[in-house]
């Protein structure tokens, strides 16, 4: 018989977050991003629209970018999660971060973690994406400050940077 769980007492999950094992009890309706932010204090992932539109909550689960608001924390049981904190500390975003800084591809910074992680996934699979491809890849990440041009410039510049 399958066990049926509720918010109270929730479910026990075992995950790896930014390389460190984390064991926790979560309410079944808590989103992954709320758990990362509220319970683990990893506030680099941002909560914008809370229904999958804006991309600010992007986190990496088992190697691929997903919406942190569209995955339940219970679904991350057994998964390896990387947030912007872990990705940034690892140095794998350095070329993108420098390009974003140099080209002023951010203003308030709310969308930036999601932009960086999504752009990094693009560049991992495509060495020299053209601007149209970059636009398409970032089409699910909203920015309300920059008008996007500087972001496209930055990703393009990072793709040719020697630091990659």
């Amino acid at each position: 018989m399958t066990a049926i769980a509720n918010d109270e007492p929730g479910l026990e999950i075992e995950t790896v977050v930014n390389g460190a094992p984390v064991r926790a009890r979560v309410a079944v309706r808590q989103s992954l991003v709320d758990w990362l932010r509220d319970d683990l204090g990893l506030t680099g992932s941002h909560v914008g629209c809370e229904h999958g539109v804006c991309g600010a909550c992007t986190v990496v689960v088992d190697g691929v970018c997903v919406r942190g608001c569209l995955m339940l924390a219970v679904q991350a049981d057994g998964a390896s999660i990387e947030t912007i904190e872990g990705a940034s500390a690892s140095g794998r975003l350095a070329a993108l971060q420098e390009a974003f800084y140099t080209r002023a591809a951010l203003q308030c910074g709310f969308c930036t973690p999601g932009m960086l992680l999504t752009a990094a996934e693009l560049l991992a699979g495509d060495d020299k994406p053209d601007r149209e491809t970059i636009r398409e890849a970032l089409s699910g990440n909203y920015c309300r400050c920059t008008g996007y041009q500087a972001i496209i410039d930055a990703v393009e510049a990072a793709s040719t940077s020697e630091k990659r």
Binding site: T2, A3, I4, R29, E50, V74, D77
Partner: peptide
């Protein structure tokens, strides 16, 4: 913007899932 409460089950076999349905 939080879901209303629901119960949750993660069956390990197809038969268990179909029994829940």
């Amino acid at each position: 913007m939080k879901p209303a409460p629901f119960a949750y089950a993660a069956p390990r076999s197809l038969d268990e899932a179909l029994a829940l349905l």
